[in-house]
């Protein structure tokens, strides 16, 4: 097993002392970490550790009661999900959240929504600026379709695609937004080895070719240790480890959490 050793200087996003609770249930307690520009950052932890809640806080879907998030130098305590999208944060979901009534092409085209601005009038006529805009964005989307090797399902309704392909289409939709920070919630859950290898390759390629910063949640330890630069470990809503894969692997608290040793 090789660990990639790269160094990063610029911090893209930092999370400071985030706490989140639903009614009396604490989902996250006093969590701080940062994501450097250009790195692949993983969040791991047992089920119910608060990993998805953490992503939901970062892209503004949940509003933490305490703490703040600094993104690209701007500190904020709250924002709306579409504001996060406008600032270049895109994501995929643990349980696939594609638009089931639409084709693969249309799904990925929705990822371009923030760049499509022609108003009702031109849209109603579908000529001039509206058509030009549609074709320009279509070209970008076709490049993504080529990149993800899903040309053959371009016009198929996504609801009927197999699970692995749906995950790929969802990644395509997130990529279509050309994000600076890409959040992936269990991109490889439920996949077989081959599909996992494909997905790993896509994630690494995205990171290399487009320089996209990636923050991912994953259960498969082998994959996480292979592809990520740094790892945050959560357990019961608290941070119990943070560092490069080798450090985390030898961290006693992490081993205990995963092997179920009593605290």
């Amino acid at each position: 097993m090789t660990t990639r050793m790269r160094s990063f200087n610029e911090v893209l996003l930092s999370v400071e002392n985030i706490s989140l609770s639903f009614g009396g249930v604490k989902a996250l307690t006093d969590i701080s970490f940062d994501i450097a520009k250009g790195e692949i950052r993983a969040i791991i932890g047992p089920n119910g550790a608060g990993k998805s809640s953490m992503l939901n806080c970062i892209n503004g879907f949940y509003h933490p009661q305490q703490g703040a998030i600094t993104y690209k130098g701007v500190r904020r305590s709250q924002m709306k999900p579409h504001e996060a999208a406008e600032q270049g944060i895109a994501r995929t979901f643990q349980n696939i959240a594609l638009f089931r009534g639409m084709s693969t092409l249309d799904n990925i085209m929705t990822g371009r929504n923030l760049r499509m601005k022609t108003g009702l009038f031109w849209q109603a006529l579908h000529i001039g600026p509206a058509q030009r805009e549609e074709i320009e964005n279509r070209k970008v989307v076709e490049r993504i379709i080529d990149f993800l090797e899903i040309q053959h399902i371009r016009k198929a309704p996504v609801g009927q695609l197999p699970y692995g392909l749906q995950k790929r289409v969802e990644l395509g939709r997130a990529l279509a937004a050309e994000p600076e920070l890409l959040l992936l919630d269990e991109p490889m859950a439920g996949m077989n080895i081959e599909e996992k290898q494909d997905m790993c390759r896509f994630i690494l390629d995205v990171n290399d070719e487009f320089g996209t910063t990636i923050c991912l949640i994953e259960h498969d330890m082998g994959v996480v240790m292979d592809i990520s630069d740094r790892v945050v470990v959560l357990d019961y809503g608290r941070k119990i480890g943070d560092g490069v894969p080798d450090e985390v692997r030898s961290n006693e608290a992490v081993v205990a959490a995963y092997l179920g040793v009593s605290h």
Binding site: F61, H82, A85, A97, L98, M102, G111, N113, R173
Partner: peptide, 13 residues
């Protein structure tokens, strides 16, 4: 997008 999954639609912008 809003019809099929409103939460996801909001999250992608």
């Amino acid at each position: 997008a809003i019809r099929d999954m409103d939460i996801a639609a909001e999250i992608i912008g």
